[in-house]
Amino acid sequence: MNRLNLHTLGPIVALIALIILGAMLNPAFLAPANITNVLARSAFIGMIAVGMTFVITSGGLDLSVGSMAAFLAGVAIIAMNAVAPALGVHWGTILLGMGVALLGGLAAGWLNGALVTKARIEPFIVTLGTMGIFRSLVTWLADGGTLSLGSGLRTLYRPVYFGGIGWITWPIITFAVVAIIGEWMMRHSRFGRHVEAIGSNERVARYSGIDVNRVKLMTYVLLGLLVGLAVVLYVPRLGSASGSTGVLWELEAIAAVIIGGTALKGGTGRVWGTVVGVLILSLIDNILNLADLVSPYLNGAIQGVIIVLAVVLQREKSTADER
C-alpha cells in the first residue's frame, strides 16, 4: 500500500521538490506575479494535455494539436478582422471569433477522429499528416508572415488573458475548471470508464457492447474542442498567429500526460497527474530562467532529464512487481 502511494504520488513529490528548489534559488519565485505567470502560461498546454489524456488513455495519440492551435488562432483572427468593419469593435465580434475557434477545434478534432476510426489509419500517421496540413495552412493564410488582430479588437480582447479575479487570471480559472471537469469525467462518467476500457483492451470493450469507434471519435473531438478553448485564451495574449505558433506543443502535452502517470499504451488515465505534469514542465522553464543554474544551451537537457526521471520513478513499482 505504501509503495502504491509513492508510485501514484511520485509526480506530486517531484512538483513539491521543484517548488522548494525554486523558492530557495530566488525569492521572486513565490511572488504572486510569478505564480500567475507560470500558471497562466501553463494553461494552453494544460487544457490541451487534459484532452490528450483522454486520447492517450483510449490508446490513441494526437500529434496535430500544436499546428491545430496555430491554424485555429489564424482562422479566428481572420474571422474577427473580417467582420470588425461590419459589426464594429465590440464583444459580439470577439464572441464570434471565440465561436470560430471552438467550432473549428470541434471540426478539426472530428477530422482526426474520423480518419482514425472510419478510415482505420493509425493515429500516429493520421495526426502526423494533419499536423503538416494545419501547419502549412496557417503559414499560407498568413502569407508566410504573421496574422495580427486589429488593434481595437486587441485592446478589447486583451483582458481575457491578462484580466481575472485578483491575480487569478482567466486562463488559470479556465484551466482549473477544465482540469476538474476532466478529472471528474475520467473517474465518474460512463465516457471515462469506456475510454479506459478501450485503452485497456479494445477487444474486451467491443465484446462488452461498447461503441468503440464512437468513443474514440469523441476523445479526438473533445481534444479538438479543448485546443479551440486554448486558442480562445491564447489569441488575446499576443494578438497574433504565425507559422511558428504552437510549435512542439503536442510533444509538451504528451510529455505532461506521461509524467502524470498515464500509460502511453493506454488503459489508465490520470487527469490530475497530467495537470501536475504540465506544472512541472512550466516550472522547470521558469526556474531555469530565474536562476542562471546552467548555460541556457543546456535547458533542454535539464528538461529531458527531469521527464525521464519522473517516468523512471513511476516505473520502479511495476518492475518490482514483475518478479
Binding site: A197, V204, S208
Partner: peptide, 25 residues
Amino acid sequence: EAGLLLEKDLRVNLTLATLERFGGF
C-alpha cells in the same frame, strides 16, 4: 483477451457491458 479487462478491478469488469444501468452520464 475478449472477456475481461485483466488490469482493472472486479467492479469495473462486472458493469462494463451494462454501465447505462448505473446512472446516466
